[in-house]
Nucleic acid binder design. Structure first.
Lengths: 190, 190
DNA sequence: GGCCGATGTGTACGACCGTCCACAGAGTGT
DNA sequence: ACACTCTGTGGACGGTCGTACACATCGGCC
């Protein structure tokens, strides 16, 4: 997103290769999902992305800047998919089914996304810079839900999605679809 | 909890001082809540606890062992409080009010607990050793809720608590008590 | 009092870390 | 073809890390 930020007045870089920055971000997300933020370093990301170590500080102002870019991309990707799912629903009942599908398939279906979500939440819980990423993410989710539900219900539903997802992840116990359906039905009842 | 684990057959330590181990664990939790797991090291914990660096590897088999002990203590403390709250309620309506109080006061009222919860979830999302801590925690929560609600409702309510708590934390937007009450009422409706 | 095993400590070591900066080398205008 | 500018790089530096191990110190026992 910030790939074409240049010192103002300078013309665009000549050899400049935007794929490089992207590849670093991808490698960073991969590494974080496998080893956590704690186990991620400039050196490891550089090795995974196949770029020299010096490129890290050249493209990013330190680890925080890199993480911010990485998690912004991640949150945007998840948000996009969420919006697409909700936009495809044409009535409240289909919207409810879409929510169930999101809980059962999207987040829980992929360990990588689950881990990345938690890493982001953890950063956001402590640092405001990362909280702005989660705030934007939640704002988009709610807006998408408000296509089908009133604002208050949308907020409660969003929270329920979060909770069900987390509990599915941390419980190591398969849960059945019906229970998720019942929970969604109750929270959207009026 | 594991303070009196000794090599089997040996008699208990003579100079052995159980407060030392406890103080290290407390210092570790403090440090994690302030700097995150990523920013926590043997050296910093030792300094905060006022013990020599060598004591770290003496009392714990590396960082993971220390973190496991620390988060086990943390989860147990939270669980205890949760159980007390739920045990004090004498009917379903009071139980609902207790749940609301837990969401509004307990977890959200304290940044420290919030951050520690997320750090634990993040570890649990990746490593089974930590997931057993969260699994036990959730098991106790559900059992406490089942004093007042059927098992299915208890699970859904537990998830809702989680989601509302997290969203309150990551949204940096005050939410009113009534909305929490409505959400709890809906999810416990039959 | 003197020994002995257990408890606990100080320190040195090798690994890894992020950052910095002198420099290489490609692209462009002349 | 030369010079100049801007992009990108390699490696050195100072610092922090976890761990291991030789050693000090203590409590009980003969």
């Amino acid at each position: 997103m910030a790939a074409q930020e240049r010192p103002p007045g300078s013309r665009l870089g000549r050899r400049n290769d935007p794929e490089r920055r992207d590849r670093i971000i991808d490698a960073c997300l991969d590494l974080v999902s496998r080893s956590g933020v704690a186990g991620t370093s400039h050196r490891k990301v550089a090795a995974a992305a196949g770029v020299p170590l010096g490129a890290m500080t050249y493209y990013f102002d330190g680890m925080d800047d890199l993480l911010k870019a990485a998690f912004t991309r991640f949150a945007t990707m998840i948000s996009d998919r969420f919006e697409r799912r909700m936009a495809a629903a044409t009535d409240p009942e289909l919207a409810r089914q879409a929510v169930v599908a999101i809980i059962l398939e999207d987040v829980f279906g992929d360990d990588r996304e689950l881990v990345l979500s938690h890493e982001l939440y953890t950063l956001a819980a402590r640092e405001p810079a990362f909280r702005s990423i989660t705030t934007a993410w939640m704002g988009r989710s709610r807006a998408a839900l408000e296509r089908h539900f009133d604002p208050e219900t949308a907020r409660m539903l969003d929270a329920l999605i979060e909770g069900l997802t987390i509990h599915r992840a941390l419980d190591s116990q398969a849960r059945d679809r019906r229970e998720v359906e019942v929970a969604v039905a109750r929270i959207t009842a009026r």
